[in-house]
Design a protein around this nucleic acid. Structure first.
Lengths: 211, 211
DNA sequence: TACTATACATACGTTTCTGAATGTATGTAT
DNA sequence: ATACATACATTCAGAAACGTATGTATAGTA
């Protein structure tokens, strides 16, 4: 065997990432060796070292594969020409929550991120990644809220910073808790309720909505 | 040297846990060896193996040391004779948030729990611990809310299950986000606001408060 | 005072993982 | 058809890290 065509090689790369996703999820990132991933993917460590630098590189590639589809969706609500920014925002939030329930791949990656990997000191590039993603997401949300205010969908007195933080807290908390104890509540069925409860607070909670 | 008195041995045990706390926090749980902990504590691995079974045992002891003081505080609000259960509940939540900011030890342990350790399959006793803590905390909260309803502090139409889930989501999300990015917002200054916003939703958000 | 359990330190054998080096067969370009 | 690059597999040396076994000096204890 060996020496596949370029397309086959790309398939091998994907298979390795798929395998890593499953093994990371089952054993935790630190406890999985490259050999574990190789066996699950049906290759040897040599193949992994060909496509990736090391385990961290596999890990990063796994997240990159999930990041791209997320990006596109976030872009919708923050378009200044969108006539219903709050509606699109609502849809996006509900979509993320339901997608986490329905798409096993996304669910696994979120679960790995929340419960099966360790973030270490500032030296760790992953920490920096998280930080950037947070700041970037915050900026998107800020733009969306400004659009919604301009269209009269949110009060002009809205405390945008508190609203942004609260959004992250809400979404992070929801995913964290549900992924830890899926039987605690029905995320898919309750998703719209949770989101509406949050949006409701943007106009009715005094400390966020303003006077 | 060696062969200390019983009191000194207890001090050694505490020093090992202290050291583990710091090293776990700096390097992450999986990347710290027992030798790392021993060096930080100024002992050898032999001392650790005397007091603990293995690294997991040290880890568990670290959490146990934090659990006890938390327990006592939670007991206050759920006392049926308490005339102001909602007020005590509010105080307890704010206390936990501020304590996380002010007590470096508690902050470290929370940070380890959220960002520096891996929860693996159901077989893992840690997972079970978390699960039990969640269910136990939920039951306490339920009792507290029932007391508050009986005293007229919360509406009788309150959806208790949703309120309980929302509480966990809120607190978990707050701590998770703040521990990841402490500069994102001032948790100590905003603690009361966050809690009041949640309590406000218990009487004003339609999907939780009821008609 | 002598003996024993305690509270560690030290030494050892084993396992496991990594990264690199090397081998090899095939795709691909000329 | 040849030559080189590619896509892996295989092998090897070294480093950690673990658990245990053993050494040892002192605190309790009778």
């Amino acid at each position: 065997m060996v020496r596949r065509t370029k397309a086959e090689a790309q398939e091998t790369r994907e298979r390795i990432i798929d395998a890593a996703e499953r093994v990371f999820h089952d054993k935790g990132v630190s406890r999985t060796s490259l050999n574990d991933i190789a066996k699950e993917a049906g290759v040897t460590r040599g193949a992994i070292y060909w496509h990736f630098k090391n385990k961290h590189d596999v890990f990063a590639a796994m997240f990159e594969r999930q990041r791209l589809p997320m990006e596109s969706m976030a872009n919708r609500a923050e378009d200044p020409n969108e006539t219903d920014p709050l509606g699109k925002f609502r849809e996006a939030m509900i979509y993320v929550l339901c997608q986490t329930v329905l798409d096993p791949g996304r669910r696994r990656v979120f679960e790995i991120m929340f419960h099966k990997c360790e973030f270490t000191a500032e030296t760790d590039p992953l920490m920096e990644r998280q930080r950037e993603a947070f700041l970037d997401g915050s900026e998107r949300t800020r733009r969306t809220f400004r659009n919604a205010i301009a269209r009269g969908q949110l009060p002009a007195s809205l405390d945008i910073e508190r609203a942004v933080v609260q959004l992250h807290v809400q979404m992070t908390g929801l995913l964290y808790v549900w992924l830890l104890l899926p039987e605690a509540f029905d995320l898919q069925a309750e998703a719209a309720n949770f989101v509406d409860c949050y949006i409701n607070s943007l106009t009715h909670c005094p400390s966020i909505a303003g006077p």
